[in-house]
């Protein structure tokens, strides 16, 4: 039945993925006011692949579509267009098949909202075990839960407690234990540390890296925090208004960013080393995804924009080790600006 699966295939392949939301006003209102439909293109044609055992991170500002990609990949949303292939299978088929479904789990941002407050921790963690019928008998289940709790740095005795008895970081450990309980190979992590304090964040990131090494996990990691992304990623995709603007090996992206937006983002991050140094703000704001600018969506904020950028949408093209969607990079017009601070970005374009 599932013969199509190629053992050497990437864990996840995403091709021309799109998700559009209809945010129109009610029909009557539209008829009376003569307003058209309003379509929000949250994700609009995204392609990438994640090899087994590696981490791909998606970064971008709020509204860029990174969390929507995460939800599409685990099947929480149905794509408007495009394909997701998981371990060589079409996602739709994989979701219908419990044996495939258990191989994929998700960790959410908010460890306060994602755990049922009325359940004991041992039941929270055992739920996927029961749902997939992974172990036989109460004793074996209890043993497995104890093992998972130990694995994420909690005590087996913690299974008897309720979520409110734990701190944010401990709750995120519980979320991770629950995600691991079906022995998945692929984890989608949507901002797993952004609700946590920095010292706790370090604990969780270290735990996630250790688990990846031990269990050979593959991660899709969603974050707005570039410093965190640098620590965990093999490759990084930068999203802007529903599209990838740059996709590159992590080291390349952080040491030699190509897309003007990537450079501006990196430049905008406050860094401890820069005490007293003036940070160069990126001008303007992300435009509305309902009415994105024509051509390259970044052109109103881009110092390198010209007539072509305003008219023609750039495709993702190879540029060294990266793929970049930028006419300036393609035409070699970015060279001079690369040595300038990205603060040359146009002032407020709003």
């Amino acid at each position: 039945m599932r013969d199509g699966a190629d053992p050497a295939a990437p864990m996840l392949e995403v091709e021309d993925l799109a998700k559009h939301f209809d945010v129109s006003r009610p029909l009557l209102h539209r008829l009376l006011s003569g307003e058209g439909r309003r379509i929000l293109r949250a994700v609009d044609g995204v392609s990438f692949a994640i090899p087994k055992g590696t981490t791909l991170s998606l970064v971008g500002e709020s509204g860029c579509g990174k969390s929507t990609v995460a939800r599409l990949v685990v099947g929480l949303y149905t794509p408007t267009r495009g394909r997701v292939r998981f371990a060589g299978h079409d996602l739709h088929e994989a979701r219908a098949d419990a044996a495939q479904r258990r191989r994929m789990q998700m960790i959410f941002q908010d460890p306060y909202a994602s755990l049922n407050p009325r359940w004991r921790v041992r039941d929270i963690i055992a739920e996927p075990i029961r749902a997939f019928g992974l172990v036989k008998g109460r004793a074996a289940e209890r043993e497995r839960v104890a093992e998972l709790l130990t694995h994420v740095g909690l005590s087996p005795l913690d299974g008897e407690k309720y979520p409110h008895e734990f701190s944010g970081g401990q709750r995120q450990r519980i979320s991770i234990a629950r995600a691991l309980s079906s022995s998945p190979e692929f984890l989608v992590c949507d901002e797993p540390t952004s609700a946590l304090d920095v010292s706790v964040q370090a604990q969780i990131l270290n735990l996630m890296k250790a688990l990846q090494r031990e269990l050979g996990l593959t991660y899709l990691f969603i974050s707005h925090n570039l410093a965190v992304v640098r620590q965990v990623s093999d490759r990084v995709g930068v999203m802007y208004l529903g599209r990838l603007v740059e996709l590159a090996p992590a080291e390349t992206l952080f040491t030699a960013p190509r897309h003007p937006y990537t450079r501006a983002l990196l430049d905008a991050v406050p860094d401890l080393g820069m005490t007293g140094r003036q940070r160069v703000p990126v001008g303007g704001e992300v435009p509305s995804p309902i009415a994105p600018p024509p051509g390259c969506a970044f052109h109103p904020r881009c110092p390198l924009a010209d007539a072509r950028c305003r008219a023609e949408r750039p495709a993702l093209l190879p540029a060294g080790e990266a793929v970049v969607a930028c006419h300036a990079v393609e035409e070699g017009r970015d060279g001079a600006a690369r040595r300038e601070p990205a603060g040359a970005l146009a002032p407020d374009a709003a």
Binding site: S199, A227, Q231
Partner: peptide, 8 residues
């Protein structure tokens, strides 16, 4: 514990 931006 603050992750650095300039190195891994």
């Amino acid at each position: 514990s603050i992750p650095p931006l300039d190195r891994r």
